[in-house]
Computed example of a mutant assay.
Amino acid sequence: MTDVTQAAIQQGMDSFMATFGRVPDNFRLLAEHAPGAFAGYGLLRGFVMRDRAEGGALDLKTKELVFALLDTLVGQTNGAKNHAAAAMRLGLTLPELAEGLVQVLMVGGITTWNITGAAVMKHCAELPPEG
């Protein structure tokens, strides 16, 4: 494995740790069995998940919300829950989340709510208050 690939893998791992506090099992599996693919993903994730202070155009709360909504649209419930919870930790409110999930419903139909959106809303409504 090249030094560049190893550095990209580490950047991806560091990005997950900074935003989620852990590397999800599916991504650990990818890094183990397809390190080059994870390295590429790590570079993309490292670029996208920069807060404004690190040169990102959008703040992390907005990026986490966007990922939660996109994951909801494609039926990726676990990812949507994780990203929505991360956005909540960064200050997203339940009314903001609900409004975003309704936008997904408008684009993707009621099935997006029934399969993923409702689970995301319930998960975030049950999170302990920050502080």
Rank of each mutant, 00 (worst) to 15 (best):
A7M: 13
Q10E: 15
Q11W: 06
M13T: 13
D14M: 02
S15R: 01
F16C: 01
M17S: 07
M17Q: 14
M17L: 06
A18D: 10
T19I: 10
F20K: 02
G21L: 03
G21M: 02
D25H: 07
R28S: 08
L29C: 06
L30C: 05
A31W: 00
E32T: 10
E32L: 05
E32Y: 05
E32W: 00
H33R: 04
A34H: 15
P35N: 00
P35A: 05
G36I: 00
F38G: 07
F38I: 02
F38M: 02
A39F: 12
A39N: 10
A39E: 08
G40P: 06
Y41M: 05
G42A: 11
L44T: 11
G46L: 03
F47E: 15
F47C: 13
F47A: 13
V48N: 07
M49C: 11
D51V: 00
D51G: 10
E54N: 03
E54D: 15
E54G: 14
G55Y: 03
G55P: 10
A57R: 13
D59Y: 00
T62C: 04
E64A: 11
L70T: 14
D71Q: 11
D71C: 12
T77R: 12
T77C: 02
A80I: 00
K81Q: 06
H83W: 04
H83R: 03
A84Y: 01
A84C: 05
A87N: 12
R89V: 00
R89C: 08
L90K: 08
L90Y: 09
L90H: 09
G91D: 08
L92Q: 05
L94D: 15
L94E: 15
L94I: 11
L94S: 13
L94K: 10
P95L: 01
L97H: 05
E99I: 01
E99G: 07
E99D: 11
G100V: 00
G100E: 02
G100D: 06
L101T: 08
L101K: 04
V102W: 09
V102N: 03
Q103D: 13
Q103K: 02
L105Y: 09
L105F: 11
V107W: 06
G109M: 10
G109D: 09
G109I: 04
I110M: 14
I110T: 15
T111Q: 10
T112K: 07
W113F: 12
N114C: 14
N114K: 06
T116P: 04
G117T: 00
V120M: 01
M121G: 09
C124W: 01
A125K: 09
E126N: 13
